[in-house]
Design a protein around this nucleic acid. Structure first.
Lengths: 197, 197
DNA sequence: GTCTATACAATGATAGAC
DNA sequence: GTCTATCATTGTATAGAC
């Protein structure tokens, strides 16, 4: 327990990066201003700028964290008992874990035309693609699985939380909360049948 | 040929909306400022503000156009010879058509926490979901198809154009330009086999 | 390490000339 | 209809006190 990311005693640096990622994910790139980040992290603008002298430095910070997390996830995915496909699909859904948040945050930057962010996303995607391809074998099927993963991860990011989170509403009418396990079962079926291009 | 969207003689209003959509899609929400839109549309800031008195009015403009196009697409999709699935997947790829651009533009606004934009995206998705479900029958498979469509549409929007569009590079190493027809063939196979949840 | 104060550019918007 | 000021506000960044 050297430096947990959420502990109050955690380093201010990490707290600032957390705040930046959260703002990016939940409110968009434009709303993630230095002032807003500082407020969310519980420091002043000046205090923030001591740790990250420039906004680009802040961005580099989240990019670096993402890279670390992706490398970790790739290692996990390869040794996953359930197999890469199930692992990938499960972790693509909005589970609210750290990788998810970082990924969505960086995707916001990518869509703001930040080429470093785009590069980072592409690298991550390439790594996952490779891991899945090694198991699945077929490129088209692999691509399809990656697209589902993308749709799960980014599509859900469009609708962070149902604006009115009315509970007990009729669930049958609209297709929310994609049935992740159902999709996995479907994909397992697919990888089993003889697919002929 | 009353008012084609690209004709120089086209209405200034449409030209402005085109410029706004393009900037939104290609440069992100933050870069789509009134000044930038005005410049791209070939008018001054004041000229722009004559047609759209406020930035919200501009946003309403693209939202309205999207709604129209989606309604049209839904009609097309239902009467498509190739079937809804093939039609949806084909038009989800970055074809550069008007619907695509509008959809990506609105998704940028949605990610900037614009609730009207989110609402519009959700409505569009619901409509497509219904159309596919009617043909496919199974909810999980339908959801899966929608996710692929999302991944195709938004995922490609992250990487507008390969930064260096080096032609003749080795295509085997990296998974670019998703094989749309291959994916469709795969999905046709899926809808044919007896899927058991 | 963290804060306040300040400089400077850019943004959304208004007023009024042509 | 379209343009050129002009203004208030906000965003990034710097300087220097504590």
């Amino acid at each position: 327990m050297t430096d947990n990311a959420k502990t109050p005693a955690a380093g201010t640096r990490e707290r600032i990066l957390d705040a930046f990622e959260t703002l990016l994910s939940e409110c968009g790139e434009r709303a993630a201003t230095l002032e807003a980040v500082a407020a969310a992290a519980g420091v002043s603008k000046g205090g923030l700028l001591y740790h990250f002298g420039t906004k680009d430095a802040l961005i580099e910070g989240v990019l670096g964290r993402l890279e670390t997390m992706v490398a970790l996830d790739i290692a996990q995915i390869r040794s996953s008992e359930a197999g890469p496909v199930a692992h990938l699909i499960r972790t693509s859904a909005p589970t609210g874990n750290n990788l998810d948040r970082a990924l969505v945050a960086v995707s916001r930057l990518a869509q703001a035309s930040n080429s470093r962010a785009r590069q980072a996303l592409r690298s991550a995607n390439d790594a996952w693609y490779q891991a899945v391809l090694e198991t699945v074998g077929d490129p088209v099927l692999t691509r399809t699985i990656m697209l589902i993963s993308d749709g799960l991860c980014y599509g859900s990011a469009f609708f962070p939380t149902e604006d009115p989170p009315r509970k007990g509403a009729q669930d049958a009418a609209r297709p929310q909360s994609p049935d992740v396990e159902g999709i996995i079962a479907l994909l397992e079926t697919l990888t089993a049948i003889p697919y002929r291009p």
